[in-house]
């Protein structure tokens, strides 16, 4: 707390808070030889005087961290983004290079967690949660079921070889270089077509657009909402993004949502039809032999 009162910058405060947290953790951990009369379970719940010092240090560290986070303005969108992006990329790379397909699927789950974090940082709350639920909860489990059904015992030889790994890696590197250079050029010189209109411009452009309130309209009122959402909305991603995404989906894209539902039904029926047809063919083959 003394560090918080000193008129210093944010970085020393952060360093002090992290150091205090480390020291607190070290002091609170059960150790064989601790100063301050810690002898087994006799030192009480707090582990004697050392434990009390550790708890005080830990509280100070939490306070310092919170203060530093407030000074940084919400503890760094950038830092959070780099962390989850690292998780996503490491998970994706491990998915591709791991030899065992089961481990590959599990690394893919980690990559999905990273991607969901990236989506959350980018302000797509619904999509982040949906990625976890749909991908990691349903699709990945389906992959694992098929693996358990179809995987031969031990590691198959075709899992230990790759088709032209050098050429494929070079092709991937060339594609990545192209993509990153074009993205960097975008960053250096944004095209005139794609600059974000300022809030005042957008207000002038659409003065009659009523301000969307927090109440989500029902599906019946969706076509009415569609006309509202169609207008340019400068802070669309800041206020209640999930409700607005729903309004966009069930307004502008209502027909596409219906088509997606139909697609899901067709895929379901098609999968069942293929399985039953395949079983019939298999029994017929066995019967003719």
């Amino acid at each position: 707390m003394i560090a918080a009162l000193l008129p210093t910058g944010t970085t020393p405060l952060l360093v002090a808070a992290i150091a205090a947290g480390t020291a607190s953790l070290w002091l609170l951990l059960p150790q064989a030889s601790g100063a301050g009369g810690r002898t087994g379970s006799l030192g009480g719940f707090f582990g004697g005087r050392t434990g009390l010092v550790g708890i005080v240090l830990g509280l100070a560290a939490l306070a310092g961290l919170a203060l530093a986070g407030r000074r940084l303005g919400g503890l760094g969108e950038e830092a959070a983004f780099q962390l989850v992006a690292l998780v996503a990329i490491v998970g994706g790379a491990a998915t591709v290079v791991t030899r065992s397909p089961v481990y590959s699927a599990i690394w893919f789950a980690l990559a999905l967690a990273g991607v969901a974090g990236v989506l959350l940082v980018l302000g797509a709350q619904f999509l982040g949660v949906a990625t976890i639920v749909v991908y990691a909860g349903a699709i990945l489990v389906m992959f694992l079921f098929v693996l358990m059904l179809a995987q031969p015992t031990g590691m198959a030889p075709y899992d230990r070889v790759s088709n032209e790994p050098l050429l494929a890696a070079i092709a991937g590197g060339v594609l990545l270089a192209l993509l990153t250079t074009s993205i960097g050029r975008l960053s250096a010189d944004p095209p005139a077509c794609c600059t974000i209109p300022s809030r005042a411009d957008a207000m002038n452009a659409a003065p009659s657009a009523p301000r969307a309130d927090n109440t989500v309209p029902g599906v019946a009122a969706a076509p009415v909402a569609a006309a509202v959402v169609g207008a340019a909305d400068p802070d669309a991603l800041s206020a209640d993004p999930v409700a607005r995404l729903g309004r966009e989906l069930f307004g502008r894209h209502l027909l596409a949502v219906e088509a997606a539902g139909l697609l899901l039904l067709v895929a379901l029926i098609g999968a069942i039809a293929v399985v039953s047809r395949g079983e019939e063919a298999g029994t017929a083959e066995r019967g003719t032999r």
Binding site: A88, I89, V96, A168, L179, I183
Partner: peptide, 23 residues
Amino acid sequence: HDALVVGAVLFVLGLVGILTRRN
């Protein structure tokens, strides 16, 4: 910009995987 780069990296990783892996 960073998110676009992350998306490009994931896409390229998946591309290399689908080209090389046999499973």
